[in-house]
Amino acid sequence: MAGIKKTGIIIRYVIAIGLLAIMVFPYVYMVLNSFAAWDQVDRKLIPTHYTLRSYEWLLGGGEAVIPRPWIHAFFNSVIVSAASTFLMMLFGVMVAYALSKIPFKGRHVVNNIILFQMFFPALILLVPTFLLVQKMGMYDSYLGMILPKALSLWAIFMYTNFFRAIPDTFIEAAKLDGASTWQIIFKIVLPMSKSITTVIFLFLFMERWTELLWDMIVTNSDRMLTLNVLLSQMFGPYGTYPGPMYAAAVLLTLPIIIIFLLLSKKFHEGMQFTLK
């Protein structure tokens, strides 16, 4: 009886590991091909000869206008994603705190406008937002990529729900001790919101890091391209250099996976809240 149960459990793990292997196979394929000898890229499921040539090509510069375009694009991605995500989180916390913890007239109006805007398909705003950014002189600049994506309705929504669950007594007590609103937010509210903050950060950063459409239409020059846009533009014309494209894909994917794995414990906790 116990033996049968044990085999049952082993079978369950075998199935789970098999499924997981299928799901992560594209990543494995990407990594193996980034190290594969150039005549084997996309020719073998598991390459047999390996080389660092793709990475040398990628990090050495290739043949482009600006030196080391891939490294440059990587740092553009870092700047844009970090700034954008930081602002989305800061404004998310501020607005959510106002909506959940500051009883002011008009709070319901603001709340309703946000809900109204959330139901609006963002599609309709694409062309005029582009024109607006152009008119404001932010075309082909970091600001043009950052400011239109400096606020996330979803972050406000998540934080508002979470802050509502924090008892007001904590905040009242801090107020009696003479704490300012910013002190209350940074010393009391945010430390209680670590796991939800992790979830919000990961989703926002991931989405910003992998954005294509907006970063593509709002930039023009080589020195402004993000890594995602550069890869998007290159793997068509550079079809003859597939190896370096896989290396670039690794460069694009690795940071976000590392960040996710580092935060995965808190992420799992936070998800439990968001799913309630």
């Binding site: 997981l20 799901m23 594209p26 394929y29 890869l231 998007s232 694009l252 794995l261």
Partner: peptide, 24 residues
Amino acid sequence: LFLVGFFLPYLASGVVSSLIVKGI
């Protein structure tokens, strides 16, 4: 642990998955 593993594809850029699919 398994859920974290299964979540990994969500982190892929559409450009990267397109590159991989184009290759495969």
